[in-house]
Design a protein around this nucleic acid. Sequence first.
DNA 1: TTTATATTTTATCTTTTAGTAAATTAACTA
DNA 2: TAGTTAATTTACTAAAAGATAAAATATAAA
Lengths: 127, 127
Amino acid sequence: MTTNQLDRTLSALADPTRRAILAQLTSGERTVTELAEPFEMTMPAVTKHIKVLEKAGLVERSRDAQKRPCRLRAAPLKEVSDWIEEYRQSWEESLDRLGGYLQELQSTGRGHGRKEHIGSRKNKRRK
Amino acid sequence: MTTNQLDRTLSALADPTRRAILAQLTSGERTVTELAEPFEMTMPAVTKHIKVLEKAGLVERSRDAQKRPCRLRAAPLKEVSDWIEEYRQSWEESLDRLGGYLQELQSTGRGHGRKEHIGSRKNKRRK
DNA sequence: TTTATATTTTATCTTTTAGTAAATTAACTA
DNA sequence: TAGTTAATTTACTAAAAGATAAAATATAAA
């Protein structure tokens, strides 16, 4: 199976350490040492995680003396976002059904249920 | 590392076979045999993929005689969507920079470049 | 040149993942 | 009851992922 960009991005994201690294990078460049600090993990382990992120195009690096600062490149996330949008309607419908069910529970036996504005999110799509 | 819901969802999605299974389920319920048909893979292999999706809460199953129809449960994708939204501004900025660069290429040497709004996003940092 | 700092490479280990073939279970059908 | 269909379980293999310790590389600073 030819591993494409979406595969690389999603499997990079599937690891909590790597997501935490990306989160650190949202506030700016960080060296490997800085990135490694919050984790109970050796430097080589962090280096490896960074490489996975780099291959997925989620991290870019430069050089500053002995340091190799990393910065976030979020562009590949757009592809994930686009993929997931195909399913938005599907999950909104199911959440609506849940909402409707809860509401029904509430109003049952109370005689004044106000269900009208519930369970009707189908056309509330983000532009 | 305690594997949470987001981990399970993302690693389930990181496999192209499993994403293809989800795609098949968008048009309705499917049996394991039907789901397996497009793949060059044995049934047990598909059964395993379905189990991964099931544990991530992305697929739910019922019973119809010997058949075990699968249906899509897209709700866990909302969590992925919410996670990724945190990065939207970040990737939109970088795509803007790319757009700006292309625009700059176009206008260079034409005598009426409108570069003012280009390449000047340094202080547009996320709150 | 020696020393300190930052990071990577190499070699190794363990666990997880993805797949298979063969046997088994479960339910319908003749 | 025997046979068929649908799916799973079991046992096994190969490859990938995640981590480590120790050695190596690269750069700056004394």
